[in-house]
Design a protein around this nucleic acid. Structure first.
Lengths: 345, 345
DNA sequence: AAATTCTCGGAGAACGTTTTCCGGCGGTAG
DNA sequence: CTACCGCCGGAAAACGTTCTCCGAGAATTT
């Protein structure tokens, strides 16, 4: 049925396969009259080019692999969406791979994708260190852009949000609204987002309180850890809980409410990423919004670019500016709570 | 570099291309000695089969297209994850397409996928009615399994949760915990999930209160609508708000809290789907959990099956049983609130 | 007017597989 | 000893494109 090939069109239009290909692909000028005939025949027969054959011959499949740690991480879906749209707009298809947060699975997925001759890879590494080898190997074969998280220096092009700037926005906001005893709930490990946000906190918090950089707890990027960390940090009665991402913040918020703490009166809570959940939390979460659409656009741009290059040149690292989104969770502090002396239940 | 072809292996192992292909693909028995040599040569040279060439010759790309309305809908990521894993386990790759909740985009994505010669399609239709034509056309070309939502009778195989059973579980639970004046916030339109959940409510709620089926508000599956609908229904002082999905329930919960309503003392709230958000809401949301992993497994199974068939046979429709997850939002009703007379602020 | 370039179209070789067909070789049966 | 039937291996034809040559005629230059 739908098996109309170039040959059929050629036969129907009375010219050669080569000519038909040229007309349809526009690779070379062709006589106006012939072109018309060919196009008419193609239309009439309902010709649809066979991408597989085209890929075999032209050594380009028009697909890019998108490898990510866990699609269920609520930060990723919006990113995936933007990427899918940006790529589709260029006529490329997206091969999706979910790594289950496991570097071994990640390596397997990468080589599966490579075996399928993807033109390029978009990759959010699972782990800065453990992903490195597989990523470097892949980068040697196809254009590869790292997203959101880095993967060691000089491995591949990368585009991410400026985590330090984001954290600085948060701290400036807290300072401006009179918070003086912040603490930090972050993630351990070597993932670049974890490291950058943590050190940005440590560097910036000292301006508020020399002891502040010391008040931090490191776990992972989960709601559960947010809950647990509050139990560790709350006894010190901070007036702000700065979280390394929104999931942690959601957990912290939940636990603080359980403990009867007044947010934001007594203690402010901030997140990072601005996932959909952030606006729904109670109180709504002050957070740092990642410029997801720009991230995707930039990644797509880098991809086209490093395909244009031979393959050489140093790695480009693009950092995009985040935006502070102030919501209820960092609203006005209760005036009485200045020194933590009197606190209403 | 990585351009090792069958020809190279053949040359290195001193036998023909055909033999190498047979050894590596295992399509035909081959002498033990030869096989060993070939395998050794392949190993040594680091041969990786070219999936594109294979696809061209064997007319099977080993890819399936996954088309969904909006990856940002929080119910989908877990489903996508399970599907990706199930498919990858069979050695198939997933081509992802996001439709932006728009039937026209959906049609475009479907034909793009078809042009790329996907072996099959997994599709969550945007709209029961508007998706129909494109879906039927696609189903004529490749095996196609509908997921989560139907698309009119007899169009294609489909696997979904038993929405009626899920709603029945909710109503039974509400009845058992003494709720007598339920209301329903649902979605308008013809999407099968919307229709099935709505009619299941209408049928089941009459047992609690003859007037209950009348208390419903229809909008869409969003948080915003959940908020808005509460303003419509709360004046009638229901003692349970049954929502058609978790997003609506989250919005309803938020608005009810704003209005000072006591959940669950005064009014219970239930959702549907059990998205990650449900456990995080305050109070945690009672909801109906979809058997996502089973859904994915069943879809994968159907896919392999209808590929085995010629293409004929009637459509199979698989309905999986959901599970009620009881959380705080439908806990014990306040004993005093029986007739809505006295209500504590 | 002859020589050169330019334009347009066709024949056919790739691309890397799978698969069909065929031929040789050893064994068993006639 | 000849005929037939495995078995195993090779040659070569697909699969549907793209792209490189080539050649014929028209257009331009010398």
């Amino acid at each position: 049925m739908a098996e109309v090939t170039l040959k059929d069109v050629a036969l129907a239009s009375g010219c050669s396969i080569a000519t038909v290909s040229r007309v349809l692909a526009g690779t070379r000028p062709v006589g106006a009259e012939t072109a018309r005939t060919v196009r008419a025949a193609a239309e009439r027969l309902g010709y649809r080019p066979n991408h597989v054959a085209r890929a075999l011959r032209s050594r380009s499949t028009g697909t890019v692999g998108l490898v990510l740690p866990q699609i269920t991480n609520p930060f990723f879906p919006t990113l995936v969406r933007e990427l899918e749209h940006a790529l589709h707009a260029e006529g490329r298809a997206v091969l999706l791979a979910d790594c289950d947060d496991d570097p071994a699975t990640e390596a397997a997925r990468i080589s599966a994708l490579l075996a399928r001759q993807v033109d390029a890879l978009l990759l959010i590494p699972v782990d800065e260190r453990h992903s490195r080898e597989a990523v470097a190997a892949a980068a040697a074969q196809v254009p590869l852009v790292l997203l959101d998280r880095g993967c060691g220096p000089g491995v591949a092009d990368s585009v991410a949000v400026d985590n330090a700037a984001g954290m600085a926005l948060v701290l400036a906001h807290l300072a401006a609204t009179g918070r003086r005893r912040p603490c930090f709930i972050g993630a351990a490990g070597t993932a670049s987002a974890a490291v950058e946000r943590r050190t940005a906190y440590e560097n910036g918090a000292a301006a508020l309180d020399p002891a502040a950089p010391g008040r931090l707890a490191l776990g992972d990027f989960s709601v559960e850890w947010g809950r647990a960390a509050v139990d560790l940090l709350w006894p010190a009665r901070p007036d702000a809980v700065v979280c390394a991402n929104d999931l942690i913040a959601a957990g912290a918020l939940q636990r603080l409410r359980q403990l009867g703490a007044d947010v934001p009166g007594e203690v402010a809570v901030t997140g990072f990423d601005d996932i959909p959940l952030a606006g729904l939390a109670d109180p709504a979460l002050t957070t740092v919004r990642q410029p997801v659409a720009d991230l995707a656009a930039e990644a797509a741009r880098l991809l086209s670019r490093c395909r244009a290059d031979g393959s050489s040149g140093p790695c480009h690292t693009v950092r995009l500016a985040p935006e502070l989104v102030v919501r209820a969770s960092s609203g006005a502090a209760a005036p009485a709570a200045v020194d933590g002396a009197l606190r209403t239940p």
